[in-house]
Amino acid sequence: MPQTLVVGVHLVLIENGQVLLGQRTNTTFASHHWHAPAGHLESEESVLAGMAREADEELGITIQEEDLDLVHTLHHLDADDGAGRLQLFFTARAYSGTITNREPDKCAALRFWPLDGLPEPIVGYTPDALTQIAAGRPLSVVGWPA
């Protein structure tokens, strides 16, 4: 039987060696944990359109689809519900607007953190993905039996 995957899109904004993370709040998944700005792909949209939409909804910035680069794919087995998830991590070559917390009901804070000093608690696969991205590795697998 073919597997159905949930697709997540994540924005990795790194400025001066620091990565933008938001502290999740009032969420069913990982409330109070830090994580890259992210969301789920909606039906009838491409992964590029989904990432651009999430950047606008969460951060108030505009990213043109052609300015997004896929830098990492993480195939994640969610221990909570046993679902397979494909987590796509993008960087932006350019964006317009000022980063603003547009979802304060879901995000308690936005902050840039040094890559070698990530906050706790943090969503479990986030440090792994950032390490893989820094090493130039395009794919990782997390949570699956060996």
Rank of each mutant, 00 (worst) to 15 (best):
Q3K: 09
L5R: 09
L5Y: 11
L5Q: 07
V6N: 11
V6F: 06
G8Y: 03
V9H: 02
L13N: 13
L13R: 11
I14D: 04
I14T: 14
I14H: 00
E15I: 03
N16W: 00
G17K: 10
L20Q: 09
L20N: 10
G22D: 12
Q23H: 10
N26P: 01
A30N: 14
H32N: 09
P37C: 04
G39C: 07
L41D: 04
S46G: 14
V47T: 15
V47E: 13
L48R: 09
A49G: 06
G50F: 00
G50Y: 04
A52N: 04
E54W: 06
E57C: 06
E57N: 13
L59D: 03
G60A: 05
I61E: 02
I61Q: 03
I61V: 11
T62D: 01
I63Q: 03
I63K: 03
Q64D: 13
Q64V: 06
Q64M: 06
Q64L: 07
E66L: 01
E66N: 12
D67K: 10
D67I: 01
L68K: 05
L70P: 08
H72D: 04
L74W: 01
L74F: 04
H76G: 09
H76P: 08
L77G: 09
D78G: 07
D78E: 14
A79E: 12
A79D: 14
D80A: 14
G82P: 12
G82A: 13
G84K: 05
G84E: 06
G84R: 07
Q87D: 15
L88S: 04
F90C: 08
T91C: 04
R93Y: 00
A94R: 15
Y95K: 01
S96M: 01
T98G: 03
T98R: 11
T98K: 12
I99E: 04
R102S: 00
E103R: 15
P104C: 05
K106N: 13
A108M: 02
A109P: 00
R111H: 14
F112A: 07
W113K: 11
P114G: 13
P114Y: 15
L118N: 07
E120T: 10
E120I: 04
P121C: 09
V123F: 10
Y125S: 13
Y125M: 11
T126I: 15
P127Q: 12
P127H: 13
D128P: 01
A129I: 06
T131R: 14
Q132M: 11
I133S: 10
R137W: 07
S140I: 04
S140P: 00
V141K: 07
G143D: 12
